[in-house]
Simulated scan of single mutants.
Amino acid sequence: MPENSRQPVIVGAFNTRQARVLEGETSHRVTLAAIKGALADAGLERSEVDGLNILPGLDYQNGTRAFGYALDIPYFWVGRQAPGPASVLEAAAAIREGVCDVVVLAAGEAGIHTDRTSVAPWTRPSNEFIECWGLMTPAEFALSAQEYLHRFAVDPVKIAYVASVIRNNGARNPEAIYYGRGPFTPQDILDSRLIAEPYHLLDCAMTGEGGSALVLTTAERARDLPAQAVTVLGGGSESWGPSYTHPPTYDRVGMLGRRAADRAFAQAGLARADVDVFELYDNFSWEIIRYFEAFGYCAVGEGADFVADGTIEIGGTHPIVTDGGTMAHSHTGESQRHQRVVQAVRQLRGTTSANQVEGARTALVAALGDVILLGA
């Protein structure tokens, strides 16, 4: 058997329709629709699947096994990592080691966030650190961003520029929930109401509903499939501690993902300059700057200047979040992390619905401390 015959590749990538509210839908239905779409994209039948990692809604414990039973798959490997780069990396390792041959990764959400007057339920877990003191996700992520701005004397306009780029990408994307809204300027971002200093409303992710799924298999199996395979070149994953329990100061989280990125590039045999497109988890605007610093693209404290002057726009040297991300495309609890991978696959195939990066051959996908590199 050739040495690279078990090289993990992505052969299916699919998003369902995304919307602020999908009337009459459930998390299980949109997740199932995403699975069917990804398998159809891959040209595979569910009977060929022997690995699953599925998260419908917030069913972290039983989602995969329940879906495996419902799909009539008798026996299957179960992945346990969070959606997005982490689960892709885990599935790729299982495929490479021969544990399984065809893995479906999927997540979806609908009908969970019904109270639009409050932040999404996954941002306010029920424990003593949340209910008494209000350390919800926006406030938590704002802590390190605010410290960064003060430590390095960064103009907030430079942070707002990041959000304007992402939202304008979504405004051009017909699949995005915020399609047609824009264009946005950095001042528009700063003029939106303050949520948790330094973040204004338009610096933050929205909430939406929909599903997303991926199918991975071996390079050898992919030769017989109609879809263009995208290779998982390398990856890394790291975390720092319990969320909502310890304060995420800049010194604790500022460099999250640095060693993961080093490992990803080492495995892939690539240099930083080889990446054509950056599909980064954009839950808050400053996080994009943090990624570029943590991943070694610029010195610490220089990220705001690094992303300026069109660098991160379509046509720039480091285009980011090309579908509009969680700020403008969709934010469906957990499946939005899969959407970062789906969009990277589309970019490398040349099939994205908008904002195609010409000649894209390599993509970096990141969500917090999880990093993967993909190649066409």
Rank of each mutant, 00 (worst) to 15 (best):
G315N: 04
E48F: 08
N15S: 11
Q347D: 09
C132G: 14
A271M: 11
P174E: 06
A271H: 07
L373Q: 03
N355D: 04
G79L: 07
T352E: 14
V104R: 01
F278C: 09
G301L: 04
A261H: 01
R340D: 13
D370K: 08
Q187H: 04
C132K: 15
F292E: 02
E334Y: 15
A376M: 06
D50I: 02
F129E: 13
Q228V: 08
L44A: 07
I289A: 06
D276P: 12
G235L: 10
N173Q: 01
I314A: 02
N168A: 06
E23A: 13
C204W: 10
G296L: 10
P156D: 08
I372H: 09
A38Q: 10
S212D: 05
M206Y: 05
E209S: 08
H28N: 15
P248M: 02
D203C: 12
P125L: 11
E209V: 11
A66D: 14
L89W: 13
T249L: 09
V78E: 15
T231R: 11
A171S: 09
V277S: 10
A38E: 10
A160E: 01
P138S: 08
G316F: 01
Q343T: 12
S237H: 15
G241H: 07
L44C: 03
Y69V: 15
I95F: 13
E97Y: 14
R259F: 07
G211A: 06
A145K: 03
G310Y: 01
Q267A: 07
